[in-house]
């Protein structure tokens, strides 16, 4: 969804998608950049990238077999678009990419990839971090940890303040 016509900011290129199958973050990034370059415009100087992968253990510390990601078809896609557009309006950025897995995700596999291009590093990094946080809070996804054949739903998200120790 492009910024509204009333916005004075330049149009931000947005690419948001869900993936039921494994994704290669580097390949996604290359394809996105190639798509942007095909438009002929000069690429912004700064790109911030975040890749989130499945840990090898559950929140309780047990070995994790896999993580299951449920979503709300329709609402999840729409909400990701709205959150991305809102975040892009708050920062002077040129392009935003979001890739999010659904379904069963194995340990070490990427769950989410967020990339932001901007003219400067600060806006690119701030937009990337802010968008990741808002997706954790406001995009309808639910995680279930599978360990020793048992599944347990996680009731909430990892807070930013805990992220460095989680």
């Amino acid at each position: 969804m492009p910024p509204t016509a009333s916005s004075a900011a330049p149009a931000v290129s947005m690419s948001v998608s869900l993936h039921p199958d494994p994704i290669d973050p580097c390949q996604q990034l290359e394809q996105w950049q190639a798509q942007l370059q095909s438009g002929g415009a000069e690429q912004p100087a700064a790109t911030s990238l975040f890749i989130g992968r499945v840990r090898g253990s559950t929140a309780a510390g047990a070995p994790l077999d896999a993580l299951e990601l449920e979503h709300y078809p329709g609402m999840t896609e729409g909400q990701l678009q709205r959150l991305t557009a809102a975040c892009a309006r708050r920062h002077p950025v040129a392009a935003v990419m979001v890739r999010h897995r659904t379904g069963l995700v194995l340990c070490g596999d990427a769950i989410i990839v967020v990339a932001v291009m901007a003219d400067r590093s600060g806006p690119a990094q701030r937009c990337c971090q802010e968008l990741l946080e808002t997706i954790k809070h406001d995009a309808p996804f639910w995680k279930r940890e599978w360990s020793s054949g048992m599944g347990e739903w996680l009731l909430g998200h990892t807070e930013l303040t805990n992220a460095t120790t989680a």
């Binding site: 709300y72 999010h100 769950i111 990741l132 997706i135 954790k136 995009a139 909430g156 998200h157």
Partner: peptide, 10 residues
């Protein structure tokens, strides 16, 4: 109408 349990995305 959807009732959404605590979200855990990202």
């Amino acid at each position: 109408l959807a009732f959404l349990p605590p979200i855990s995305g990202g």
